[in-house]
Design a protein around this nucleic acid. Structure first.
Lengths: 175, 175
DNA sequence: GCGAATTGTCTTCCACGGAAGACAACTTAT
DNA sequence: ATAAGTTGTCTTCCGTGGAAGACAATTCGC
């Protein structure tokens, strides 16, 4: 099989543009490919429950928050890194399924409090087990030491990106 | 700042479901988050050229293939890991921009050969430089040794996923 | 208290990609 | 040569999420 698509790509660039260094793709390209493949690999339990991966994000965010399993739309938007518009639609779908409820906040009548129904808690508790088991299976090929190393390096990349001070092309965000 | 969203999530799960091991998220969750953040961080050069990230994928695939910078729709579909329908649409957009052309294959009249125009080559050559510079900047926080380690571990994960023999939940693909 | 600015959510419109089927062209067996 | 099956691409329909604006409720200054 074409067992390393990214290495091939790097090879092609090396031939066509020897003036450039394509090796960053060995990391960044692989991360992007991994994310795409992971989405597919981890989908089955959610698909079986007729849920989009994004919809499960809502359930998981509420469930891990602990009792009473509630968050406002804005809080969900922050935790899931999607816009509030996407939150509205995800919640709409889940309400249609009877997995969450939406009510007006007591503290601020603009706010909508989204909460897991008991059905929602039960489904989420079941799905998260399968989900984590699948994730564990995917990591089976790595030793404990490899895992710790990988965690550290990925966290380091996340920090670099979060700090935002990497953009070489003009985009100086001020400061 | 909430400098480690994933660590927080793992902490929440550990509190709510102490019977489960949420640590796979430290790797898999971070990869997914990184991919999302990378897409945003790497978009500016493409956005400036009025290109979607996916559209640049087409240009890059053709360019790194070398002269005469041509691939069929099917080949593009394989290299970009998207359906042929997506290829059709990406190519349509790029044709409208004058960056690629589409013609009937001489060898097989069903096949469509997509090729870079000279404008397309020029734009791609410019964008790939910016793009790789941005990727290099993102990796600036890692030592050479860290990079090699990260490449190795990501490649290992890719292999596990590609081989497909990880799915614990029933999904035995036969064999 | 009242009006202006702000905040939180929802709505509308749009872009993108997947799935499944349509269609044309190729291959093979006879 | 012809019919049946296969292959390569495009088309249609749908689902999902972003961006920008609408709207209601809150806060702040006076």
């Amino acid at each position: 099989m074409d067992d390393d698509r990214i290495a091939d790509i790097v090879g092609q660039w090396g031939r066509e543009r020897p003036d450039l260094d394509p090796t960053p793709l060995l990391i960044i390209g692989r991360i992007q490919q991994l994310a795409a493949v992971l989405d597919v690999a981890l989908r089955p339990p959610f698909a079986a429950a007729d849920l989009g991966n994004g919809d499960f994000d809502v359930l998981a965010a509420l469930r891990r928050e602990g009792e009473p399993y509630t968050l406002t739309a804005g809080q969900l938007s922050q935790r899931m890194l999607v816009t509030t518009g996407a939150v509205t639609k995800r919640v709409d779908r889940l309400i249609a399924r009877g997995l969450v409820s939406r009510s007006v906040s007591a503290a601020d009548a603009r706010g909508r409090v989204v909460g897991l129904t008991s059905t929602g808690v039960a489904l989420t508790d079941r799905l998260i087990e399968e989900h984590l088991a699948n994730e564990a299976a995917i990591l089976r090929g790595l030793t404990d030491s490899d895992r710790r190393t990988l965690e550290r390096l990925l966290a380091a990349m996340n920090r670099t990106l979060a700090s935002g001070d990497f953009e070489p092309e003009g985009g100086g965000h001020d400061g």
